[in-house]
């Protein structure tokens, strides 16, 4: 046991990091949420709705996901053209 350990300020062990990462990941995968399979469809539908109002370039769409223990953030970034004209 190191001095740091003794005073309870030990840096986090890597095995602990491994356990946490696996717990988060597997919780999602077992819940079937990893089936990010619905995301392409979701993206298409969101875009279809937006296209009813604004012209959107397919290249200007960014989708990102960040999974945490208790919540996941799905971020859809759509860059609108400057003029943003109505159709």
């Amino acid at each position: 046991m190191s001095i740091l350990n003794f005073f309870g300020r030990a840096p986090k062990k890597s095995a602990e990091a491994a356990r946490e990462r696996l717990q988060i990941l597997l919780a999602h995968e077992r819940a079937g949420l990893q089936g990010t399979d619905f995301l392409p469809q979701l993206q298409r539908e969101i875009l279809d709705v937006i296209r009813r109002y604004v012209e959107v370039d397919d290249e200007r769409v960014q989708v990102s996901l960040d999974r945490e223990q208790h919540l996941s953030v799905l971020e859809v970034n759509i860059e609108l053209p400057v003029s943003g004209q109505r159709r």
Binding site: R21, I24, L25, T36, L39, P40, Q41, Q43, D58, E59, V61, Q62, V63, S64, L65, D66, R67, E68, L74
Partner: peptide
């Protein structure tokens, strides 16, 4: 993805790109 430490950021994958469901840069 786990070894590279980006497992929580996977949205689309190689198969999505092959099937045309996602763009490569996505």
């Amino acid at each position: 993805d786990l070894i590279m430490g980006c497992e929580r950021r996977v949205v689309y994958d190689l198969i999505n790109v092959i099937n045309g469901d996602a763009k490569l840069n996505q």
